[in-house]
Design a protein around this nucleic acid. Sequence first.
DNA 1: ACCCAGGAGACGC
DNA 2: GCGTCTCATGGG
Length: 293
Amino acid sequence: MPSGTIDLDETVPFSLYHTLHSGQAFRWQVHDGVWTGVVRDTVITLAQTGQRLSFGHTNPDLIRNYFHLDLDLDAVLRSISIDPYITHAVREGYGLRIVRQDPWECLISYIASANMKAVTTNARLEVLAGRWGEAIPSDEGEFHQIPAPEVVAEIGVAALRVCGFGYRARLMKAAAEYIIDHSDWETAIGAMDYHAAHARLTEIPGVGPKVADCVLLFGFNKYEAFPVDVHIRKIVGEAYFQGEGRSCQPIERQNCCTREFGRTYFGAYAGYASQYLFNKRFHRHSKLAVRTP
DNA sequence: ACCCAGGAGACGC
DNA sequence: GCGTCTCATGGG
């Protein structure tokens, strides 16, 4: 089983904790500083000491790709640190990197996350993978992939409801069927610009503006996407609109305004700004990482 | 009991 | 196009 270390240059911002604890990717667990998770069809273990990243059960290329270590994050963070509030958020979560998730896993995960707590979503996805996902042999125990679209479509709404997805079950099945009928979706959306890709994604059942932005940001690395959820809406309202003014508008209107504000205000890497703002509020409340399998 | 969670779809207007 | 209601499920 291959394993090794990556010694990052001092100029490369990287915090394993903030990256995996920020709520962007589901299914990661940590015990005694060692993170374990499934990336596509591989079980990965990770630990960080200073600028040294130790990993097991994979190869350096997969690690570099997953954490996008070639991205000049320092330059990105400088480009979004345009006011005291975001600058403080960047300092607090310094080294958080947006990872490259599998687009399908990202899609089905965020469809499932709608109007549900992240920790609950995480538990549901583990049940789904455990019951219906392909097993991955590992020294760390039994792990499973998120089932492919064909499997999600075949097991049907009833099986998905048993996993606890509630009313989202029919949307997950419909989304899986859409993906099966549009097998080129990944390359097609990857080749589109932000606006076209966002419009195309919202054609998928269960995908609205927020989920589309999450999939573009986490699954396709289109960094101008600025996902707006209840937290980001509150944060942006408090930090940039004095907590008033827009609060009298309906939620959908606020979300749309906040999304446009974020993209135009923070620029090409607005998605990074959203993650640092989200992390600032989210990470101290999260239970994602302390749950045991 | 009531409210909320990394929202989206189906309505009526 | 915009506003409102509803949708499972669990935890505070």
